[in-house]
Design a protein around this nucleic acid. Structure first.
Length: 906
RNA sequence: GGGCGAUUGGCUCAGUCGGUUAGAGCGCACGGUUCACAUCCGUGAGGUCACUGGUUCGAAUCCAGUAUCGCCCACCA
């Protein structure tokens, strides 16, 4: 058995332990070191593959901790537990980062060209990849590195091609010209989800358009119609003016033409119910090429939809002097020109919502493009069915409402991106405009429609939205579309864990694509974590500079502490604030556990050889303290099981923290010390005590292992093991729940109170901490044997010796002398008189204060419980056990009050 | 405009099915070098559970409403 260093230094243990796990090949469910039971169902966890763009942040560390907790628990339960690690190529995010790097070098995407740009990208991700994998290991992820996957590897690429082809064949993917969200900064379209609605104060300009005189076909100087707009530059794309059909103000205008300035185009005034009569002037300009509403209106009325913007956001193709100007410069120039011509009626501040690019923060421009879309409605319907039927459960449940809402109103998903880094869309176009979609790695041999050879076909230059490949993750990583053994064994998966912020981006897409392509829900449970915020509750972001580096926290307090801290603070779906105090608390806990183990290992009776095989404590030699410890361990195991079953991982840490620190260390070890150090006791008794300590500590190390894997592994190695135990805790078996002993728990619990009360009296009376107190005590016969068995321990812990036991309350009263401190424990069950050597007035007064305080408290509670019992409705309608409980409580308080009053001479 | 969440000691948070005296950590006060641990030990103080009303024998917990903060969704120019 390895020696334990005196001081706990996380850094020294963690790296070495990880290497041991790797060497033992225990992470893979089918690894050489696995102890999984193949007859049990496999357990697979789906982790969001982190973006390969830089380094892990604290949120990743938290995710990893929770995922690893689940996988380690399942592994110890004997399931084939698969934690498949991965990385996401993060197409647009990666390009954004790389473009930033290139900009500093004076280069750009355009200056390099597609090929060289992609080379740079491969170099970049090769570096970040290693950093990120190392970080995951540092956190302790027991992932199966042999199955590591990447969304840009050949398996993913194949899955993407096959998935898209199948969707296309079922008409679930289609190509069409539509208004897409165009980001002039990123020079690509983005999906609706990537447009962030930002409230801003803009300007609402009111502008006069001149009506056309039907006779002269020239604009009339005086007859005008006023329209309101927040984007005057779109005037250049106007093809109509609309009014409400029932608006009497404009009834006479409908059907007439107006002249659009600058482009000098005459367009009709149309009637359409889309117009809000109350807004602005009640007349609205229609720009079908650059506005979603207007586009729909344009379709209803057969209006042309000219595009007036180039990809870079400059005005183009209008034939006006504004061509070539940036959209915002053009806006200013147009406003100035209108003002000069007298057609600008007014300009007023206006609260509005602007769509900005999630990535670059540029203002998104709707514009027409021919692109690929996924028909989401039928897919969404099946995803909804899965959650409604319970086939897939979302935790916490309240997110099902959000889920329902989004999937019910879902719009088709634009998957084309005009970027370079990503999976190329496997669609080829022939000169005649035929479309051929192929899942073949080398593309089609010929046009599917007219048979033109591949050499005459052009592949779509676009790539897929990065979430398209992520959406295939649960099955593409297991070999799909091939019927591999992994796919057969581990799919559908068990739990998918992620932050609630990507429920639509990712979870919904996996569900939709998974059900469609594999015919089954990709996982049975969606566990949504909250986000980590800084101590002030702000979202962590690089620009704010409040990002906590998980490695910094690990360096300071250890990976175990970081894991404990983030799991401790986590309630599913709720955000948590994170400051340095949390890992410190967890580190202290680890330190406590370390020292407790050191004590236990060092307290081994010499009659037990160092390498002894593990034995259960001999029942016949167990004292109440040992029975209490064993019973509490069973209670703790049950509580931990309940917490795990309910995904209440924060609760799990609290249960263990309390069990280990407040019970095992504070009382269990302290009670045991007395027996272990008493050389007069038979050796069998001391051995039984020690084996009980070992048994319970072993249980707690197992229970804590999924949360704090490193330290538990190290400590466990120093304990004697059973022949059936594996070498490593990581593959050891999860503890079973045994029988509790309520009698012992109650009795020992009361005696613990006794010790606490004596300490309290000592502190209140300001008696020196080091003094031994001479004490008389009455304990009822029911507690007698337990008391006698624990008397030496109680004496030592209360520092009260001799602790003279009186056999009746009367005897105690008779033996009490004036000046003794009085203590009433457990509702009057136990009474104590503490003899103060030289009763000085101060201590007597202080003690009186304490008793009066206790009396007031007890009387307060007594009033409450009596009122309740005086209520006939309560007595007759509350369940019997509750009423009985109240009665017992009343009797107890009554007794306590009487005794306290007696002691106070009242 | 819809929807969701939060509001519990000074701070950060738990609190399952409504049921004895609402818990923890940090902080605070007082006291401690007893051979596992000062990253510690002991004792204690501190809460009308945001507010209003309701349901109930009984509400931090369920219902309705209000307030404050936060988030998500949403094509009013």
């Amino acid at each position: 058995m390895p020696e334990l260093p005196k001081a706990y230094t996380p850094r020294d243990v963690e790296g070495a332990i990880y290497e041991r796990w790797l060497a033992a090949d225990v992470f893979a469910p089918d690894g050489a070191g696995s102890t999984a039971d193949p007859t049990l169902e496999p357990f697979t966890i789906i982790q969001p593959p982190p973006n390969i763009t830089g380094s892990l942040h604290l949120g990743h560390a938290q995710r990893t901790a929770v995922e690893d907790l689940m996988i380690r628990h399942a592994r110890m339960r004997g399931h084939r537990a698969l934690f498949l690690p991965g990385l996401d190529h993060a197409s647009i995010a990666a390009q954004f980062v790389l473009d930033g790097i290139l900009a500093k070098e004076g280069e750009s995407r355009q200056s390099l060209g597609r090929e060289r740009y992609l080379e740079r990208m491969h170099e970049f991700v090769a570096r970040t990849r290693e950093v990120m994998l190392a970080q995951q290991r540092r956190v302790g992820a027991s992932a199966d590195w042999g199955r590591l996957r990447y969304t840009m590897d050949e398996g993913s690429a194949n899955a993407v091609r096959v998935a898209f082809t199948r969707l296309y064949e079922k008409d679930l993917a289609y190509r069409t010209e539509a208004l897409v969200n165009w980001c002039p900064g990123c020079q690509t379209s983005v999906s609706d989800l990537e447009v962030v609605a930002t409230p801003e104060t803009g300007t609402l300009w009111t502008i006069r358009y001149h009506l056309i005189d039907p006779a002269t076909r020239a604009p009339e100087p005086e007859a005008t119609i006023s329209i309101a707009t927040t984007r005057p530059e779109t005037i250049l794309g106007d093809t109509a003016v609309a009014v409400h059909p029932d608006d009497p103000r404009y009834a006479a205008f409908v059907g007439r033409l107006v002249r659009i300035p600058f482009v000098e185009r005459d367009v009709p005034i149309i009637a359409d119910e889309v117009v809000d009569r109350a807004f602005g002037s009640g007349a609205v300009k229609i720009t079908p090429g650059h506005d979603h509403d207007d586009h729909a209106t344009g379709l209803r009325h057969g209006l042309p939809a000219p595009t007036i913007l180039a990809d870079d956001g400059t005005i183009a193709g209008t034939g006006t002097r504004f061509d070539g100007l940036d959209r915002f410069a053009a806006r200013a120039a147009i406003v100035a020109a209108l003002e000069a011509s007298g057609d600008l009626v007014k300009a007023e501040p206006h609260e509005m919502v602007v769509g900005r690019c999630q990535r670059s923060n540029d203002i998104i421009e709707p514009r027409l493009k021919t692109q690929w879309f996924i028909r989401t409605r039928p897919l969404a319907a099946r995803a909804l069915e899965a959650t409604r039927s319970g086939a897939t459960r979302i935790l916490p449940e309240r997110f099902e409402k959000t889920w329902e809402h989004w999937l019910t109103d879902i719009r088709d998903w634009n998957v084309s991106r005009q970027l370079w880094w990503g999976h190329r869309i496997p669609a080829w176009y022939c000169p005649d405009g035929h479309v051929t979609v192929s899942s073949e790695i080398d593309g089609p041999v010929a046009c599917a429609t007219c048979g033109r050879p591949a050499t005459e076909l052009q592949q779509d230059p676009d790539i897929f939205d990065t979430w398209f490949s992520s959406g295939l993750w649960p099955f593409s990583t297991l070999g799909w579309p091939d019927p591999t053994p992994d796919y057969a064994t581990y799919y559908p998966t068990s739990v998918m864990e992620t932050g609630y912020d990507i429920i639509f981006f990712w979870v919904a897409r996996m569900m939709m694509l998974g059900i469609e392509l594999t015919g089954t829900e990709p996982f049975h449970t969606v566990y949504l974590s909250g986000l980590i915020r800084d101590p002030l509750g702000q979202k962590m972001s690089k620009t704010k500079g409040n990002v906590v580096d998980p490695l910094g926290a690990i360096d300071a307090s250890g990976a175990d502490a970081l894991r404990f801290a983030v799991i401790h603070g986590a309630t599913p779906g709720n955000d948590q604030r994170f400051g340095p105090a949390k890992p410190e608390q967890a580190r202290n806990f680890a330190n406590k556990l370390w020292n407790a183990t050191r004590y236990v290992v060092g307290a081994r009776p010499t009659s037990i050889p160092a390498g002894a095989e593990r034995r259960l404590p001999d029942e016949r030699h167990l004292g109440p303290a040992e029975r209490w410890l064993l019973s509490r361990a069973t209670a703790t195991t049950a509580a931990v099981d309940t917490a795990v079953a309910g995904y209440a991982f924060g609760e799990l840490t609290r249960v263990l923290y309390r069990a280990i620190w407040s019970e095992y260390c504070d009382w269990g070890l302290e009670l045991a010390k007395v027996r272990l150090s008493d050389q007069d006791l038979p050796v069998e008794v001391r051995e039984a005590t020690w084996w009980a300590l070992v048994e319970v500590l072993d249980t707690y190390l197992r229970l804590l292992h999924p949360v704090m894997p490193f330290i538990t592994e190290v400590l466990w190695a120093t304990l004697p093991h059973r022949a059936s135990d594996p070498d490593l805790l990581i593959v050891a078996r999860w503890p079973g729940v045994g029988e509790r002993d309520p009698e012992v728990e109650r009795a020992v619990g009361t005696l613990i109170d006794l010790v606490t009360e004596i300490r309290n009296a000592r502190a209140s009376a300001r008696l020196p901490a080091a003094d031994w107190l001479e004490t008389l005590v009455f304990v009822p016969p029911s507690l007698g044997p337990t008391f006698e068995a624990l008397r030496p321990a109680i004496e030592r812990l209360a520092r009260a010796r001799p602790l003279r036991r009186e056999l009746t309350p009367e005897a105690l009263t008779a033996a009490t002398t004036p000046g003794d401190l009085a203590i009433i424990v457990g509702g009057g069950e136990i009474e104590v008189a503490v003899r103060v050597g030289r009763p000085d007035t101060t201590s007597v007064e202080l003690d009186r204060d304490r008793l009066e305080h206790e009396l007031a408290e007890a009387e307060g509670y007594l009033v409450v419980v009596r009122e309740r019992l005086a209520n006939d409705a309560f007595v007759s309608r509350a369940p019997a056990p509750v009423v009985e409980g109240a009665r017992a409580r009343e009797a107890e308080l009554d007794d306590q009050v009487a005794k306290l009053r007696d002691r106070l001479g009242l």
